[in-house]
Design a protein around this nucleic acid. Structure first.
Length: 347
DNA sequence: AATCCGGGGTC
DNA sequence: GACCCAGGATT
């Protein structure tokens, strides 16, 4: 790549002077780096901050993580999304304990074999924690490099990402591996922003940027459109019996697997039928505010009902507000309904 | 190569 | 509403 040596040098210099002070940048503990990189997958820095510290208080070491109850881990991950991340994290922790004596292997290919560690995360841990010459290519890096070189290749293609992984690994500066990796991502996160507001006027590598030179920054990166979401229509129930609220564990597979939810069914089913199939003697049904929740590939349109029922069935758990909030992982999709239901409970 | 898997910020 | 994101596993 043209001017690559100079670009690397400028970028590292800029990063050293402008790096944000983040909790996981104050440590060289590979486990902490690992945890932060998993939490940061598809997730913004500000969202991760409160979770990172709290998680480490409960799981201060890889061995502690390996031995923590899964429900506890899900509660720690509650609201962060992509819950398979924390299951895979624990699987990997057990592997690290069993096969590596509780310390992460200082080897890219060994890291890559651990559950939940893909090309990006392996590169991030290798370069940041172990000063190994492996690039970490994420969405930020692809955007930065696409603009810097006015690269027309579609960044959603695996081939494009693979090419940048090789190219950037070959550019990796000895002694500044972690700074290079983090500098690229920091530039993407704070300067080379997506959409309409890249801050080219403060960019440390502007003079090398081909897209800037062509006055075409917003034409990069090139990416193919993504598929549209399907809509699902649900009836969701806040069922109450003697101040206890019904909670149901979701299936072990698929969306939000293993988390807890308010009982719900397809909107096509009549409400009294749904309740009777659950063995609930229906009481007074009050309408609650309708809710919409958007996932990556699904939209939930929820009609919501507050129902004071006459009996507790055995398919659900009937729990107090406090118990649920302290111990059960409830996905964000249900949070607003939960809040409204609890306030109705007060009356 | 396509699909599945959360959630929140921004314009 | 549209777009984006510090991705990886599964098929």
């Amino acid at each position: 790549m043209k001017d690559s040596k100079d670009i690397v040098k400028e970028l590292i210099q800029w990063y050293k002077e402008n790096a944000r002070d983040l909790p996981w940048r104050r440590t060289k503990n590979p486990y902490h780096i690992w945890l932060s990189e998993i939490m940061l997958q598809q997730t913004r820095v500000e969202a991760v901050k409160p979770y990172f510290q709290r998680f480490l208080q409960t799981c201060p070491t890889i061995e502690a993580l390996a031995n923590t109850e899964e429900d506890t881990l899900l509660k720690l991950w509650e609201g962060l999304g992509y819950y398979s991340r924390v299951r895979n994290l624990q699987k990997a922790a057990k592997t690290v304990v069993d096969e590596y004596g509780g310390a992460l292997p200082q080897d890219y290919h060994a890291l890559r074999k651990l559950k939940g560690i893909g090309p990006y995360t392996a590169g991030a841990i290798a370069s940041i924690a172990f000063s190994l010459p492996y690039a970490a290519v994420d969405g930020n890096v692809l955007r930065v490099m696409s603009r810097l070189t006015a690269d027309e290749r579609d960044i959603t293609l695996a081939s494009t990402k693979g090419a940048w992984e090789e190219e950037l690994s070959s550019m990796m500066p000895t002694g500044d591996e972690g700074n290079f990796t983090q500098g690229l991502m920091e530039l993407g996160a704070t300067v080379c922003l997506p959409n309409g507001n890249p801050k080219c006027e403060i960019c440390p590598v502007r003079k090398y940027c081909q897209a800037y030179r062509k006055n075409a920054v917003l034409q990069f990166p090139v990416k193919s459109p993504k598929k549209e979401r399907t809509k699902e229509y649900l009836s969701v129930f806040f069922l109450v019996h003697r101040k206890k609220i019904a909670l149901q564990k979701r299936d072990g597979k698929g969306l939000l697997s293993g988390l807890w939810q308010l009982p719900n069914c397809n909107q096509e089913k009549a409400l009294p039928v749904a309740l009777s199939e659950w063995g609930i003697l229906s009481g007074n049904i009050k309408d609650m505010k309708a809710q919409k929740h958007i996932f990556t590939h699904i939209e939930w349109h929820m009609s919501c009902y507050f129902v004071e029922v006459e009996n507790e069935n055995k398919d659900f758990l009937w729990l107090s507000k406090e118990t649920v909030e302290n111990e059960y992982a409830l996905p964000s999709a249900f949070k607003k309904i939960w809040q409204e239901g609890c306030s109705l409970l007060e009356d």
